[in-house]
Design a protein around this nucleic acid. Structure first.
Lengths: 202, 202
DNA sequence: GGTAACAAAATTGGCACCAATAATCTGATT
DNA sequence: AATCAGATTATTGGTGCCAATTTTGTTACC
């Protein structure tokens, strides 16, 4: 993600995504330089970068903190994702080539397989890969990266989102239906599926 | 914007917005600490923050650089703005109170007045204020801030966007029509106006 | 016991210097 | 003259230290 390959920014972002930090708590620089075995400069760089991406908060002379789990806030970020992803449904259908659709189907089936047999720790990755490839059909890499960041702002932890088995099974089904919608060039149906998928209206 | 009020981040962002740096050029840290009369630590902090917001680029061991004026890239960012702003047209209409509509009309008229009489250097600010207030009707501050950043990524300089007098007069007219659409709770019309306004299809 | 003022500790912010890497210049060789 | 290798310069990246600020702890006072 970050252009700085061997930086700790990605590791910190991943740990935030995984919910390893208590929401609302302070990300103290000494703790982080201890945790990631780096100096303070790389820590500050990572914190400032993530704050710029609004993955964490910043207050002058107080430091950087993990977003508290605020339902209203996550709902707002979710609404942004919704507008973007559904707004690009036409371009997704227009830009999807047959081989890409085949890869999408593969990823959707792989997700369904993991839902059935595990390993469940790979659910998030596989789900992410599917959605990334779906959005990449538009050729708009900036949009894909932006949605990635928005996703990091909405999913506080895998636990809360993937706990319910009925829900993830439904997600797997929706993935397959989305592939069908893309295959049939039915952007309206795709947008509708995306809406209920993102909002998780079970 | 940035939580750090007395930082140079905002000043640098504003100078980038105003097009004071050559597109594609390197933002050398020594130049910046000279320009803003600060040390290198604040400079690095500002650069990393702006890179996180993708207002500038970063390459490891090479530094931070101004985005080159890439038509394809700006078109992609514009497409994101389009999806978001039109996607929120319903919420704008739903959330607009009478007094807010009055303020919107004021801003639209103020913009039209400046188009007529000047001072033209305030065109960007007034335009921004109008669009911010329009989007703020949704109550989604995260979306407003995000669109602000996207706007900073699309408008390389005021010159390119505001040069054509016919275009800005048309923009002023569109602002007023948008207010009418909001007043009439016609979200479809508002979305349509926003589309042509953002894409500047003259 | 509770509160306010003060002191101590913890934490962030910034600066100066050095290391690591990249860019540029120089000159020898063909 | 063009090219390649090496040296020189320029630029970024990192570390350690200290200042500024905030937080926490302590003590006197009511």
């Amino acid at each position: 993600m970050s252009d700085d390959s061997d930086s700790i920014t990605d590791r910190l972002a991943e740990d935030l995504r995984a919910g390893l930090f208590t929401p609302g708590s302070w990300l103290k620089q000494v703790d982080l330089q201890d945790r990631y075995a780096v100096g303070r400069a790389p820590v500050r760089k990572a914190l400032e970068s993530l704050a710029g991406r609004r993955l964490i908060r910043y207050e002058k002379n107080r430091g950087y903190s993990v977003h508290p789990t605020d339902n209203d806030e996550t709902a707002q970020v979710l609404a942004i994702r919704l507008a973007i992803e559904t707004g690009f449904s036409e371009e997704i259908c227009a830009g999807a080539r047959p081989d890409t659709i085949a890869e999408l189907r593969n990823l959707a089936e792989q997700f369904a397989r993991i839902v059935r047999d595990g390993p469940f720790e790979r659910l998030y990755d596989t789900n992410l890969a599917f959605h990334r490839k779906l959005l990449l059909c538009t050729g708009n890499l900036h949009m894909v990266n932006l949605v990635d960041d928005l996703r990091l702002r909405t999913s506080p932890a895998p636990a809360s989102q993937w706990m319910d088995r009925a829900r993830i099974e439904r997600s797997a089904q929706e993935h397959l239906e989305m592939v069908l919608a893309v295959e049939m060039d039915d952007s309206m149906r795709l947008a509708s599926l995306m809406r209920q998928h993102i909002l998780q209206k079970v």
